[in-house]
Nucleic acid binder design. Structure first.
Length: 145
DNA sequence: GCCAACGTTGGC
DNA sequence: GCCAACGTTGGC
């Protein structure tokens, strides 16, 4: 299984809205960046990701799971843009702030820090485990610590 | 709201 | 294929 991070401005698409979709999930549409799109094309069913609030909040607030493989983005006719569907899995008990990520030497190479503007990013397994731990979850089981 | 970083577009 | 202009993202 691979790990990812999805950024969303809560004023556009918030964690609460994502959770309201339940297990049906929702398209991660609107991505118009090749690197972010390529990341979504690499995703497999069951891959997990962080749900990060940008602009406001600036923290990892939830865990999502890929529930549909890459397919054309329904919000455009432009064939270049594909996206996956994701569903909410659970809240992060203690949201992990960007400032806390930056302050943690183990996370110095996270794309969240090094590729600030990339909206769909890969997360390494040890980064996943560390951010989960900071958030109050066991990264493997996703059970509260 | 500002502005730095950086991705995209389009003229040449 | 270069690169200037432009648009967008996202932290602060």
């Amino acid at each position: 299984m691979r790990y990812w991070l999805f950024k969303s401005e809560p004023s556009t698409w918030s964690w609460d809205q994502q959770k309201a979709k339940g297990d049906a999930g929702e398209e991660w549409d609107g991505i118009r960046n090749y690197q972010a799109r390529n990341n979504m094309r690499e995703m497999k069913l069951g891959d997990r990701g962080f749900f990060y609030h940008s602009q406001e909040g600036l923290e990892v607030v939830g865990i999502v799971e890929v529930c549909a493989l890459s397919h054309p983005d329904s919000t455009t006719d432009d064939e270049r843009w594909d996206c996956v569907d994701v569903k909410a899995v659970r809240d992060v008990p203690n949201p992990v702030a960007l400032s806390a990520v930056k302050a943690n030497p183990k996370l110095a190479k996270m794309a969240l820090v090094t590729h600030m503007r990339l909206s769909v990013q890969p997360v390494l397994e040890d980064e996943w485990m560390e951010v989960c731990r900071m958030g109050g979850l066991d990264g493997a089981t996703l059970k509260p610590l």
